[in-house]
Amino acid sequence: MQFGIFTVGDVTPDPTTGRAPTEHERIMATVAIAEKAEEVGLDVFATGEHHNPPFVCSSPTTLLGYLAARTNRLVFSTSTTLITTNDPVKIAEDFSVLQHLSGGRVDVMLGRGNTGPVYPWFGEDIRQAVPLTVEKYALLRRLWREEVVDWEGQFRTPLHGFTLAPQPLDGVPPFVWHGSIRTPEIAELAAFHGDGFFANHIFWPASHTERMVQFYRRRFEHYGHGTAAQAIVGLGGQVFMRRNSQDAVDEFRPYFDVAPVYGHGPSLEEFSEQTPLTVGSPQQVVEKTLGFKEYVGDYQRQLFLVDHAGLPLKTVLEQLDLLGEVVATLRVEMEKDRPADVPDAPTHDSLLAASRKDTEDD
């Protein structure tokens, strides 16, 4: 089981002081957060992709390449890479380079994004979001797996005799997660290819996440990739902790109330009751997180959002110290009664070993 954090890279004023960090401060704070994540024993750091203010994560692979040089163990991912508005050739190139720089410590989460204006900025039509996703991903898979690609589709100029440079590290493409909040077609796409499915799991009630994940599991089994229980599932979530639960609620409330992702709506208490958001003590975070597998089954990756809504860097680093303690407990508890045939999250090493075994079997 992998545990980690993800960021959306928002530049939000601290509601308790009124001061917003500069873009430079926010980027460098993200670096400090990732380094702290490795220090406290987390497994994964992921960054989103946005191309508009108030966000600074417009070039995920640039950030992740820099972080790879400053860390030794973290796996880097995205949350998400916009398959709809990026060129598959450029995605394939960027992540191949990142594989080589990081020694294979990278995978990718693909998604459609939730910012409508980004589509025309990159010459695409939001009404074609799902067809764009399907076609571009089909091309991306071929670019990572075929030495010479001849291709023609609906949304992009044809390729004739194209060879990706560099090729994926060890000839093994990065593992792909497909991220979605509400779109069953994306769960179907993940299942069809035997890829991972990542349910954002922040905004919606548990019943919705349960339906999406169980649909993906059934379709994964339908396509012959393994049993439904062996499907590769990831979940998002957000936590805010203090040793005393009421202190956590009092401190986080002003940030929640104006958060660009979910502020100005239900109260903190209502949102916490209806969604995976956990604001309280470390033990409360452990208990609520352990409850996730009651409705999604045993899963492979849990990522937490900890730096959203204008929280100051000092506070975020304190959250990571607490999260390190929580994850140490979750690692033990999550393994209890976990069936032996439920796989771990794929890594470069495990994918390489599987590839070599397939070659030997042939």
Rank of each mutant, 00 (worst) to 15 (best):
E251M: 03
T183G: 02
E287M: 09
S281M: 09
L169A: 11
T163P: 03
W204Q: 14
L67D: 09
Q284S: 00
S355C: 03
V342D: 04
H222E: 15
V89T: 11
F271K: 08
V149K: 02
V56P: 11
G171I: 08
E35V: 07
A190F: 01
L235Y: 06
F240S: 02
T78F: 08
R243L: 07
Q128C: 01
H51R: 05
R253D: 09
V148K: 11
H225K: 00
L164R: 10
F304Q: 15
R141F: 09
H225P: 10
V326L: 07
G226K: 02
D298N: 13
E325Y: 12
L322G: 03
W204S: 13
T85R: 05
T78D: 06
L82E: 00
Q283P: 01
F192P: 02
D195A: 09
A228K: 08
D170N: 15
Q167S: 14
H308Q: 15
E325V: 11
G171W: 06
H178G: 00
L322V: 07
V108D: 03
P13W: 11
R182P: 03
F252Q: 05
V286H: 08
M241R: 06
D349S: 12
R73D: 13
A29M: 05
L110A: 02
H208V: 13
F192Y: 15
F304L: 14
R242W: 00
A353L: 12
T115F: 14
G161H: 03
M28Y: 14
L277P: 04
E38W: 11
T315M: 11
V286T: 12
F304H: 14
S58R: 04
R112Q: 05
V134H: 11
A354M: 06
Y262S: 06
L290K: 09
E38A: 04
P60V: 04
E23P: 00
V342E: 10
T71C: 12
D321P: 00
I91W: 10
E360K: 10
L98G: 00
G4E: 02
T157G: 05
R331G: 01
G194L: 10
G263L: 07
G171K: 04
I83D: 00
P312R: 10
H348R: 07
N244K: 12
I91S: 05
V89I: 15
H264L: 11
Q319C: 13
A191V: 09
L313I: 07
T17R: 06
M212S: 12
A29D: 15
L169Q: 10
F240Y: 14
G65D: 05
F252Y: 15
G113E: 01
L74Q: 09
G324P: 00
V31Q: 06
L67A: 11
Q238R: 13
A165S: 09
Y66F: 15
A29F: 07
I5N: 04
T47L: 13
P13Y: 12
F95K: 01
F45E: 01
G226D: 02
P120A: 08
